[in-house]
Design a protein around this nucleic acid. Structure first.
Lengths: 230, 230
DNA sequence: TTATTATTGTCACAAATTGAGACAATAAAT
DNA sequence: ATTTATTGTCTCAATTTGTGACAATAATAA
Protein backbone atom coordinates (compact mmCIF):
# COMPACT_ATOMS: atom_id res chain seq x y z
CA UNK A 1 0.00 0.00 0.00
CA UNK A 2 2.56 2.47 -1.21
CA UNK A 3 1.52 5.92 -2.35
CA UNK A 4 3.19 5.67 -5.72
CA UNK A 5 1.16 2.57 -6.64
CA UNK A 6 -2.10 4.47 -6.37
CA UNK A 7 -3.80 7.46 -7.90
CA UNK A 8 -3.92 10.36 -5.47
CA UNK A 9 -6.95 12.31 -4.32
CA UNK A 10 -9.30 9.66 -5.62
CA UNK A 11 -10.99 6.84 -3.73
CA UNK A 12 -14.07 4.67 -3.98
CA UNK A 13 -16.72 3.53 -1.53
CA UNK A 14 -19.12 0.63 -1.87
CA UNK A 15 -22.62 0.20 -0.49
CA UNK A 16 -23.03 -3.57 -0.49
CA UNK A 17 -26.67 -4.57 -0.18
CA UNK A 18 -27.84 -7.94 1.07
CA UNK A 19 -31.26 -9.26 2.03
CA UNK A 20 -31.90 -11.40 5.09
CA UNK A 21 -34.61 -11.86 7.64
CA UNK A 22 -37.01 -9.78 5.59
CA UNK A 23 -34.91 -6.65 5.66
CA UNK A 24 -32.28 -4.88 3.63
CA UNK A 25 -28.75 -4.82 5.03
CA UNK A 26 -25.40 -3.31 4.08
CA UNK A 27 -21.80 -4.08 4.96
CA UNK A 28 -20.10 -1.74 7.44
CA UNK A 29 -16.48 -1.81 8.65
CA UNK A 30 -15.39 -0.88 12.16
CA UNK A 31 -11.83 0.40 12.61
CA UNK A 32 -9.55 -0.85 15.38
CA UNK A 33 -10.01 0.83 18.76
CA UNK A 34 -11.73 3.93 17.40
CA UNK A 35 -15.47 3.37 17.45
CA UNK A 36 -15.41 4.62 13.85
CA UNK A 37 -17.70 2.94 11.34
CA UNK A 38 -17.38 3.33 7.59
CA UNK A 39 -18.32 1.90 4.22
CA UNK A 40 -15.85 -0.50 2.65
CA UNK A 41 -13.72 1.33 0.11
CA UNK A 42 -10.28 1.65 -1.34
CA UNK A 43 -7.99 3.27 -3.84
CA UNK A 44 -7.26 2.89 -7.55
CA UNK A 45 -3.95 1.49 -8.72
CA UNK A 46 -2.16 3.50 -11.35
CA UNK A 47 -2.56 0.84 -14.02
CA UNK A 48 -6.05 -0.29 -13.06
CA UNK A 49 -9.50 0.60 -14.37
CA UNK A 50 -11.67 2.35 -11.81
CA UNK A 51 -14.39 -0.31 -12.10
CA UNK A 52 -11.82 -3.07 -11.67
CA UNK A 53 -10.49 -1.43 -8.53
CA UNK A 54 -13.97 -1.51 -7.02
CA UNK A 55 -14.39 -5.19 -7.96
CA UNK A 56 -11.01 -5.95 -6.42
CA UNK A 57 -12.11 -4.27 -3.19
CA UNK A 58 -15.39 -6.18 -3.17
CA UNK A 59 -13.61 -9.45 -3.77
CA UNK A 60 -11.47 -8.79 -0.69
CA UNK A 61 -14.48 -7.97 1.49
CA UNK A 62 -16.90 -10.64 0.24
CA UNK A 63 -14.87 -13.29 -1.59
CA UNK A 64 -17.19 -12.91 -4.58
CA UNK A 65 -16.47 -12.27 -8.25
CA UNK A 66 -19.08 -11.23 -10.79
CA UNK A 67 -21.02 -9.07 -8.42
CA UNK A 68 -23.88 -6.90 -9.67
CA UNK A 69 -22.34 -3.46 -9.39
CA UNK A 70 -23.47 0.01 -10.30
CA UNK A 71 -21.75 3.35 -10.04
CA UNK A 72 -24.19 6.00 -8.81
CA UNK A 73 -22.46 9.20 -7.74
CA UNK A 74 -19.11 10.86 -7.08
CA UNK A 75 -18.79 12.77 -3.83
CA UNK A 76 -16.41 15.69 -3.96
CA UNK A 77 -17.32 18.31 -1.35
CA UNK A 78 -14.50 19.78 0.70
CA UNK A 79 -16.65 19.20 3.79
CA UNK A 80 -15.97 15.48 3.51
CA UNK A 81 -12.25 16.10 4.08
CA UNK A 82 -11.49 15.35 7.71
CA UNK A 83 -7.85 14.34 8.05
CA UNK A 84 -8.03 14.09 11.83
CA UNK A 85 -10.36 11.11 11.54
CA UNK A 86 -8.04 9.27 9.19
CA UNK A 87 -5.13 10.16 11.45
CA UNK A 88 -6.91 8.61 14.45
CA UNK A 89 -7.60 5.47 12.43
CA UNK A 90 -3.96 5.13 11.38
CA UNK A 91 -2.64 5.82 14.87
CA UNK A 92 -5.03 3.35 16.45
CA UNK A 93 -3.64 0.63 14.20
CA UNK A 94 -0.04 1.76 14.82
CA UNK A 95 0.51 2.75 11.21
CA UNK A 96 3.37 5.13 10.50
CA UNK A 97 2.01 8.60 9.81
CA UNK A 98 5.02 9.37 7.62
CA UNK A 99 4.61 6.40 5.36
CA UNK A 100 0.84 6.81 5.10
CA UNK A 101 0.75 10.56 5.04
CA UNK A 102 -0.87 10.45 1.60
CA UNK A 103 -3.98 8.97 3.23
CA UNK A 104 -4.39 12.24 5.13
CA UNK A 105 -4.88 14.16 1.88
CA UNK A 106 -8.24 15.10 0.45
CA UNK A 107 -10.09 12.43 -1.54
CA UNK A 108 -12.91 12.59 -4.01
CA UNK A 109 -14.83 9.36 -3.77
CA UNK A 110 -16.67 7.49 -6.51
CA UNK A 111 -19.53 5.57 -4.94
CA UNK A 112 -20.95 2.25 -6.12
CA UNK A 113 -23.66 -0.02 -4.89
CA UNK A 114 -23.53 -3.80 -5.13
CA UNK A 115 -26.30 -6.37 -4.80
CA UNK A 116 -25.34 -9.79 -3.53
CA UNK A 117 -26.83 -13.00 -2.25
CA UNK A 118 -26.46 -12.68 1.50
CA UNK A 119 -25.93 -16.38 2.02
CA UNK A 120 -22.92 -16.57 -0.27
CA UNK A 121 -20.88 -14.07 1.71
CA UNK A 122 -18.59 -14.24 4.71
CA UNK A 123 -17.55 -10.61 5.22
CA UNK A 124 -13.82 -10.07 5.76
CA UNK A 125 -12.28 -7.14 7.68
CA UNK A 126 -9.09 -5.54 6.35
CA UNK A 127 -5.86 -4.70 8.12
CA UNK A 128 -7.24 -1.52 9.67
CA UNK A 129 -10.56 -2.89 10.85
CA UNK A 130 -11.88 -5.15 13.57
CA UNK A 131 -14.96 -6.18 11.71
CA UNK A 132 -16.90 -6.10 8.49
CA UNK A 133 -20.50 -6.86 9.29
CA UNK A 134 -24.07 -6.65 8.07
CA UNK A 135 -26.22 -3.87 9.48
CA UNK A 136 -29.90 -3.37 8.90
CA UNK A 137 -30.40 -0.36 6.66
CA UNK A 138 -32.72 1.11 9.30
CA UNK A 139 -30.28 0.61 12.18
CA UNK A 140 -26.87 1.77 11.00
CA UNK A 141 -24.23 2.97 13.45
CA UNK A 142 -23.05 6.59 13.02
CA UNK A 143 -20.74 6.66 9.99
CA UNK A 144 -17.63 8.77 9.40
CA UNK A 145 -17.19 11.44 6.73
CA UNK A 146 -20.24 11.72 4.45
CA UNK A 147 -20.90 7.99 4.40
CA UNK A 148 -24.45 8.40 5.70
CA UNK A 149 -25.16 10.61 2.66
CA UNK A 150 -23.63 7.99 0.40
CA UNK A 151 -25.86 5.29 1.84
CA UNK A 152 -28.95 7.47 1.48
CA UNK A 153 -28.17 8.22 -2.15
CA UNK A 154 -27.42 4.56 -2.87
CA UNK A 155 -30.80 3.53 -1.52
CA UNK A 156 -32.56 6.27 -3.46
CA UNK A 157 -30.83 5.21 -6.69
CA UNK A 158 -31.65 1.57 -6.05
CA UNK A 159 -35.31 2.49 -5.62
CA UNK A 160 -35.31 4.55 -8.79
CA UNK A 161 -33.73 1.71 -10.77
CA UNK A 162 -35.88 -1.03 -9.32
CA UNK A 163 -38.55 -1.06 -12.00
CA UNK A 164 -36.30 -0.38 -14.91
CA UNK A 165 -33.87 -3.18 -14.38
CA UNK A 166 -35.33 -6.00 -12.26
CA UNK A 167 -32.26 -5.71 -10.07
CA UNK A 168 -33.94 -7.25 -7.04
CA UNK A 169 -33.13 -10.69 -8.36
CA UNK A 170 -29.45 -10.21 -7.52
CA UNK A 171 -30.30 -10.21 -3.83
CA UNK A 172 -31.82 -13.69 -3.98
CA UNK A 173 -30.55 -17.24 -4.46
CA UNK A 174 -30.72 -18.73 -7.95
CA UNK A 175 -34.23 -20.09 -7.30
CA UNK A 176 -36.86 -18.20 -5.37
CA UNK A 177 -40.60 -17.93 -4.98
CA UNK A 178 -42.72 -15.02 -6.10
CA UNK A 179 -43.23 -14.19 -2.45
CA UNK A 180 -39.45 -14.05 -1.86
CA UNK A 181 -39.14 -11.59 -4.71
CA UNK A 182 -42.00 -9.50 -3.41
CA UNK A 183 -40.39 -9.30 0.03
CA UNK A 184 -37.21 -7.96 -1.56
CA UNK A 185 -39.15 -5.28 -3.39
CA UNK A 186 -40.98 -4.32 -0.23
CA UNK A 187 -37.73 -4.07 1.72
CA UNK A 188 -36.17 -1.83 -0.91
CA UNK A 189 -39.20 0.39 -1.40
CA UNK A 190 -40.09 0.47 2.28
CA UNK A 191 -43.75 -0.20 1.60
CA UNK A 192 -46.20 -3.03 1.06
CA UNK A 193 -47.04 -4.14 -2.47
CA UNK A 194 -50.30 -5.68 -3.66
CA UNK A 195 -49.69 -9.35 -4.27
CA UNK A 196 -51.73 -9.96 -7.42
CA UNK A 197 -50.57 -6.85 -9.21
CA UNK A 198 -46.95 -7.61 -8.38
CA UNK A 199 -47.25 -11.20 -9.62
CA UNK A 200 -48.92 -10.10 -12.84
CA UNK A 201 -46.25 -7.49 -13.53
CA UNK A 202 -43.34 -9.84 -12.88
CA UNK A 203 -44.79 -12.57 -15.08
CA UNK A 204 -45.60 -10.11 -17.87
CA UNK A 205 -41.92 -9.25 -18.14
CA UNK A 206 -41.40 -12.79 -19.44
CA UNK A 207 -37.90 -13.08 -18.06
CA UNK A 208 -38.64 -15.40 -15.16
CA UNK A 209 -38.45 -19.11 -15.79
CA UNK A 210 -40.82 -21.26 -13.77
CA UNK A 211 -39.51 -24.46 -12.19
CA UNK A 212 -40.87 -27.16 -9.88
CA UNK A 213 -42.94 -26.31 -6.83
CA UNK A 214 -41.39 -25.72 -3.46
CA UNK A 215 -42.88 -28.01 -0.79
CA UNK A 216 -42.09 -26.66 2.64
CA UNK A 217 -44.48 -28.83 4.68
CA UNK A 218 -46.86 -25.93 5.20
CA UNK A 219 -50.61 -26.44 5.27
CA UNK A 220 -51.36 -24.67 1.99
CA UNK A 221 -50.72 -24.70 -1.72
CA UNK A 222 -47.00 -24.85 -2.56
CA UNK A 223 -45.55 -21.98 -4.61
CA UNK A 224 -43.57 -22.37 -7.82
CA UNK A 225 -39.85 -21.64 -7.84
CA UNK A 226 -38.51 -19.18 -10.39
CA UNK A 227 -35.09 -18.33 -11.72
CA UNK A 228 -33.78 -15.45 -13.75
CA UNK A 229 -31.22 -16.98 -16.06
CA UNK A 230 -32.85 -19.35 -18.55
CA UNK B 1 -2.61 26.88 -13.32
CA UNK B 2 -0.02 25.45 -10.98
CA UNK B 3 -0.06 21.79 -10.06
CA UNK B 4 -0.13 22.39 -6.35
CA UNK B 5 -3.35 24.40 -6.59
CA UNK B 6 -5.25 21.44 -7.98
CA UNK B 7 -6.14 17.91 -7.02
CA UNK B 8 -4.17 15.39 -9.05
CA UNK B 9 -5.50 12.53 -11.15
CA UNK B 10 -9.00 13.97 -11.13
CA UNK B 11 -10.70 16.10 -13.77
CA UNK B 12 -14.18 16.93 -14.96
CA UNK B 13 -15.85 17.19 -18.36
CA UNK B 14 -19.10 18.92 -19.24
CA UNK B 15 -21.61 18.11 -21.95
CA UNK B 16 -23.36 21.46 -22.44
CA UNK B 17 -26.65 21.01 -24.28
CA UNK B 18 -28.37 23.79 -26.17
CA UNK B 19 -31.34 23.82 -28.53
CA UNK B 20 -31.44 25.79 -31.76
CA UNK B 21 -32.84 25.42 -35.23
CA UNK B 22 -34.88 22.42 -34.16
CA UNK B 23 -31.93 20.33 -33.11
CA UNK B 24 -29.90 19.53 -30.05
CA UNK B 25 -26.38 20.89 -29.87
CA UNK B 26 -23.40 20.69 -27.54
CA UNK B 27 -20.33 22.83 -26.95
CA UNK B 28 -17.03 21.50 -28.33
CA UNK B 29 -13.56 23.02 -28.00
CA UNK B 30 -10.88 22.89 -30.67
CA UNK B 31 -7.24 23.07 -29.55
CA UNK B 32 -4.70 25.31 -31.26
CA UNK B 33 -3.11 23.85 -34.39
CA UNK B 34 -3.90 20.26 -33.59
CA UNK B 35 -7.22 19.36 -35.18
CA UNK B 36 -8.14 17.93 -31.77
CA UNK B 37 -11.70 18.41 -30.54
CA UNK B 38 -12.81 17.87 -26.96
CA UNK B 39 -15.48 18.55 -24.39
CA UNK B 40 -14.96 21.56 -22.16
CA UNK B 41 -13.52 20.46 -18.84
CA UNK B 42 -11.11 21.34 -16.09
CA UNK B 43 -9.59 20.53 -12.75
CA UNK B 44 -10.62 20.84 -9.13
CA UNK B 45 -8.87 23.28 -6.83
CA UNK B 46 -7.67 21.87 -3.56
CA UNK B 47 -10.08 23.96 -1.49
CA UNK B 48 -13.03 23.78 -3.86
CA UNK B 49 -16.10 21.53 -3.97
CA UNK B 50 -16.21 19.32 -7.05
CA UNK B 51 -19.59 20.72 -8.10
CA UNK B 52 -18.33 24.27 -7.68
CA UNK B 53 -15.34 23.51 -9.88
CA UNK B 54 -17.66 22.42 -12.66
CA UNK B 55 -19.77 25.56 -12.28
CA UNK B 56 -16.63 27.67 -12.37
CA UNK B 57 -15.63 25.98 -15.62
CA UNK B 58 -19.07 26.49 -17.14
CA UNK B 59 -19.05 30.13 -16.14
CA UNK B 60 -15.78 30.59 -18.03
CA UNK B 61 -17.10 28.88 -21.15
CA UNK B 62 -20.61 30.33 -21.22
CA UNK B 63 -20.66 33.37 -18.95
CA UNK B 64 -23.67 31.91 -17.14
CA UNK B 65 -24.30 31.30 -13.45
CA UNK B 66 -27.11 29.16 -12.11
CA UNK B 67 -26.96 26.61 -14.87
CA UNK B 68 -29.03 23.44 -14.71
CA UNK B 69 -26.34 20.86 -14.05
CA UNK B 70 -26.34 17.15 -13.38
CA UNK B 71 -23.52 14.74 -12.64
CA UNK B 72 -24.08 11.49 -14.50
CA UNK B 73 -20.98 9.26 -14.54
CA UNK B 74 -17.31 9.07 -13.65
CA UNK B 75 -15.01 7.69 -16.32
CA UNK B 76 -11.96 5.86 -15.01
CA UNK B 77 -10.70 3.33 -17.54
CA UNK B 78 -6.97 3.22 -18.16
CA UNK B 79 -7.73 3.18 -21.88
CA UNK B 80 -8.69 6.85 -21.67
CA UNK B 81 -5.12 7.74 -20.63
CA UNK B 82 -3.29 9.00 -23.72
CA UNK B 83 -0.50 11.34 -22.63
CA UNK B 84 0.76 11.81 -26.18
CA UNK B 85 -2.42 13.64 -27.09
CA UNK B 86 -2.13 16.03 -24.18
CA UNK B 87 1.55 16.51 -24.97
CA UNK B 88 0.68 17.50 -28.54
CA UNK B 89 -1.89 19.96 -27.26
CA UNK B 90 0.59 21.58 -24.87
CA UNK B 91 3.37 21.73 -27.45
CA UNK B 92 1.06 23.22 -30.06
CA UNK B 93 0.29 26.07 -27.70
CA UNK B 94 3.97 26.45 -26.71
CA UNK B 95 3.36 25.44 -23.11
CA UNK B 96 6.37 24.28 -21.11
CA UNK B 97 6.28 20.50 -20.74
CA UNK B 98 8.18 20.76 -17.48
CA UNK B 99 5.80 23.15 -15.82
CA UNK B 100 2.70 21.33 -17.06
CA UNK B 101 4.00 17.83 -16.72
CA UNK B 102 1.22 17.05 -14.27
CA UNK B 103 -1.27 17.36 -17.13
CA UNK B 104 0.39 14.35 -18.76
CA UNK B 105 -0.60 12.14 -15.82
CA UNK B 106 -3.61 9.86 -15.80
CA UNK B 107 -6.97 11.47 -14.96
CA UNK B 108 -10.24 10.06 -13.81
CA UNK B 109 -12.99 12.33 -15.07
CA UNK B 110 -16.31 13.14 -13.45
CA UNK B 111 -18.80 13.96 -16.20
CA UNK B 112 -21.70 16.40 -15.98
CA UNK B 113 -24.33 17.56 -18.39
CA UNK B 114 -25.74 21.07 -18.44
CA UNK B 115 -28.89 22.44 -20.06
CA UNK B 116 -28.86 26.05 -21.12
CA UNK B 117 -30.79 28.54 -23.15
CA UNK B 118 -28.85 28.71 -26.40
CA UNK B 119 -29.59 32.36 -26.97
CA UNK B 120 -28.06 33.48 -23.69
CA UNK B 121 -24.63 32.12 -24.46
CA UNK B 122 -21.58 33.40 -26.27
CA UNK B 123 -19.14 30.47 -26.02
CA UNK B 124 -15.61 31.41 -24.97
CA UNK B 125 -12.44 29.45 -25.86
CA UNK B 126 -9.73 29.05 -23.23
CA UNK B 127 -5.99 29.65 -23.47
CA UNK B 128 -5.33 26.33 -25.19
CA UNK B 129 -8.15 26.43 -27.71
CA UNK B 130 -9.01 28.25 -30.90
CA UNK B 131 -12.71 27.88 -30.53
CA UNK B 132 -15.59 26.81 -28.36
CA UNK B 133 -18.56 26.23 -30.61
CA UNK B 134 -21.94 24.60 -30.94
CA UNK B 135 -22.12 21.33 -32.84
CA UNK B 136 -25.23 19.45 -33.78
CA UNK B 137 -25.43 16.29 -31.67
CA UNK B 138 -25.73 14.27 -34.88
CA UNK B 139 -22.73 15.89 -36.55
CA UNK B 140 -19.93 16.02 -34.03
CA UNK B 141 -16.29 16.09 -35.09
CA UNK B 142 -14.12 13.16 -33.91
CA UNK B 143 -13.39 13.72 -30.22
CA UNK B 144 -10.24 12.91 -28.27
CA UNK B 145 -9.94 10.38 -25.43
CA UNK B 146 -13.28 8.78 -24.56
CA UNK B 147 -15.25 11.96 -25.08
CA UNK B 148 -17.56 10.37 -27.65
CA UNK B 149 -18.55 7.82 -24.99
CA UNK B 150 -19.15 10.62 -22.53
CA UNK B 151 -21.47 12.39 -24.97
CA UNK B 152 -23.36 9.18 -25.70
CA UNK B 153 -23.89 8.49 -22.01
CA UNK B 154 -24.93 12.09 -21.37
CA UNK B 155 -27.60 11.87 -24.05
CA UNK B 156 -28.83 8.53 -22.76
CA UNK B 157 -29.07 9.89 -19.21
CA UNK B 158 -30.87 12.99 -20.42
CA UNK B 159 -33.40 10.81 -22.21
CA UNK B 160 -33.91 8.65 -19.15
CA UNK B 161 -34.45 11.70 -16.96
CA UNK B 162 -36.69 13.54 -19.39
CA UNK B 163 -40.02 12.33 -18.06
CA UNK B 164 -39.06 12.30 -14.43
CA UNK B 165 -37.88 15.85 -14.17
CA UNK B 166 -39.29 18.07 -16.92
CA UNK B 167 -35.75 19.17 -17.64
CA UNK B 168 -36.48 20.19 -21.21
CA UNK B 169 -37.62 23.56 -19.98
CA UNK B 170 -34.04 24.56 -19.19
CA UNK B 171 -33.25 24.56 -22.90
CA UNK B 172 -35.89 27.19 -23.67
CA UNK B 173 -36.36 30.90 -23.01
CA UNK B 174 -38.47 31.94 -20.02
CA UNK B 175 -41.64 31.96 -22.16
CA UNK B 176 -42.33 29.38 -24.82
CA UNK B 177 -45.20 27.79 -26.69
CA UNK B 178 -46.33 24.21 -26.31
CA UNK B 179 -44.95 23.56 -29.77
CA UNK B 180 -41.51 24.87 -28.74
CA UNK B 181 -41.49 22.47 -25.83
CA UNK B 182 -42.56 19.57 -28.00
CA UNK B 183 -39.74 20.28 -30.44
CA UNK B 184 -37.24 20.09 -27.59
CA UNK B 185 -38.61 16.74 -26.49
CA UNK B 186 -38.49 15.43 -30.03
CA UNK B 187 -34.89 16.57 -30.46
CA UNK B 188 -33.82 14.87 -27.23
CA UNK B 189 -35.72 11.65 -27.84
CA UNK B 190 -34.91 11.55 -31.54
CA UNK B 191 -38.50 10.75 -32.48
CA UNK B 192 -41.81 12.42 -33.22
CA UNK B 193 -44.39 12.84 -30.47
CA UNK B 194 -48.16 12.96 -30.85
CA UNK B 195 -49.24 16.55 -30.37
CA UNK B 196 -52.47 16.09 -28.42
CA UNK B 197 -51.08 13.47 -26.06
CA UNK B 198 -48.03 15.60 -25.37
CA UNK B 199 -50.11 18.68 -24.67
CA UNK B 200 -52.42 16.79 -22.36
CA UNK B 201 -49.52 15.31 -20.41
CA UNK B 202 -47.69 18.61 -19.99
CA UNK B 203 -50.82 20.41 -18.82
CA UNK B 204 -51.73 17.61 -16.41
CA UNK B 205 -48.45 18.14 -14.57
CA UNK B 206 -49.84 21.49 -13.46
CA UNK B 207 -46.48 23.19 -13.31
CA UNK B 208 -46.77 25.32 -16.43
CA UNK B 209 -48.25 28.77 -16.09
CA UNK B 210 -50.22 30.04 -19.06
CA UNK B 211 -49.68 33.62 -20.22
CA UNK B 212 -50.86 35.82 -23.10
CA UNK B 213 -51.03 34.52 -26.66
CA UNK B 214 -48.13 34.84 -29.03
CA UNK B 215 -49.11 36.65 -32.23
CA UNK B 216 -46.54 36.02 -34.92
CA UNK B 217 -48.49 37.29 -37.92
CA UNK B 218 -49.18 33.79 -39.18
CA UNK B 219 -52.44 32.87 -40.82
CA UNK B 220 -53.77 30.68 -38.01
CA UNK B 221 -54.77 30.60 -34.39
CA UNK B 222 -52.07 32.01 -32.08
CA UNK B 223 -50.66 29.74 -29.39
CA UNK B 224 -50.47 30.55 -25.69
CA UNK B 225 -47.13 31.25 -24.10
CA UNK B 226 -46.13 29.26 -21.02
CA UNK B 227 -43.51 29.62 -18.33
CA UNK B 228 -42.16 27.26 -15.73
CA UNK B 229 -41.58 29.41 -12.68
CA UNK B 230 -44.80 30.42 -10.87
C1' DT C 1 -61.65 -40.16 5.39
C1' DT C 2 -63.25 -35.71 5.63
C1' DA C 3 -63.32 -30.97 6.99
C1' DT C 4 -60.18 -27.01 8.09
C1' DT C 5 -56.54 -23.65 7.32
C1' DA C 6 -53.36 -20.71 4.95
C1' DT C 7 -51.46 -19.47 0.76
C1' DT C 8 -51.07 -19.58 -4.23
C1' DG C 9 -52.23 -18.86 -9.20
C1' DT C 10 -55.49 -16.91 -12.06
C1' DC C 11 -59.46 -14.59 -13.55
C1' DA C 12 -62.99 -10.81 -13.83
C1' DC C 13 -64.31 -6.32 -13.56
C1' DA C 14 -63.54 -1.35 -12.40
C1' DA C 15 -60.64 2.60 -12.61
C1' DA C 16 -57.12 5.16 -14.56
C1' DT C 17 -54.05 6.24 -18.25
C1' DT C 18 -52.76 6.61 -22.97
C1' DG C 19 -53.53 6.36 -28.13
C1' DA C 20 -55.76 8.34 -32.00
C1' DG C 21 -58.60 11.14 -34.34
C1' DA C 22 -62.40 14.75 -34.80
C1' DC C 23 -63.58 19.38 -34.68
C1' DA C 24 -64.50 24.04 -33.55
C1' DA C 25 -61.81 28.35 -32.80
C1' DT C 26 -58.94 31.33 -34.41
C1' DA C 27 -55.19 35.00 -37.11
C1' DA C 28 -53.89 36.37 -41.13
C1' DA C 29 -53.88 36.07 -46.25
C1' DT C 30 -56.72 35.90 -50.43
C1' DA D 1 -66.42 36.57 -47.11
C1' DT D 2 -63.50 32.65 -47.98
C1' DT D 3 -59.39 30.08 -47.42
C1' DT D 4 -55.38 28.25 -44.91
C1' DA D 5 -52.66 26.52 -41.17
C1' DT D 6 -52.40 25.68 -36.49
C1' DT D 7 -54.19 25.47 -31.81
C1' DG D 8 -56.97 23.92 -27.76
C1' DT D 9 -60.13 20.69 -26.37
C1' DC D 10 -63.14 16.88 -26.60
C1' DT D 11 -64.55 12.00 -27.46
C1' DC D 12 -64.04 7.29 -27.84
C1' DA D 13 -60.99 3.18 -28.14
C1' DA D 14 -57.14 0.62 -26.47
C1' DT D 15 -54.15 -0.46 -22.91
C1' DT D 16 -52.59 -0.69 -18.30
C1' DT D 17 -53.33 -0.89 -13.43
C1' DG D 18 -56.16 -1.42 -9.06
C1' DT D 19 -59.04 -4.47 -6.47
C1' DG D 20 -61.28 -8.23 -5.07
C1' DA D 21 -63.10 -12.97 -5.92
C1' DC D 22 -62.30 -17.71 -6.18
C1' DA D 23 -60.84 -22.24 -7.16
C1' DA D 24 -56.67 -25.13 -6.33
C1' DT D 25 -53.81 -26.94 -3.42
C1' DA D 26 -50.64 -29.14 0.95
C1' DA D 27 -50.68 -30.16 5.27
C1' DT D 28 -53.34 -30.45 9.73
C1' DA D 29 -57.12 -31.51 12.61
C1' DA D 30 -61.28 -33.95 13.43
Amino acid sequence: MNQKDFLTNIAFDSVVFGFSGGSLKILIMEYHNTGFFALPGGFVQRNENLNDAVRRGLKERTGLDNIYLEQFYTFGDTARYKPEIMQTILESSNYSLEKYEWLLDRFISVAYYALINYKEVVPQPDALSDSCEWYDIDALPPLIFDHADIVAKALQTLRDNLDRKLVGINLLPARFTMNDLQKVYEAILGEKIRRTTFQRKMLSLEILKRHEKQYLGKAHKAPYLYSFED
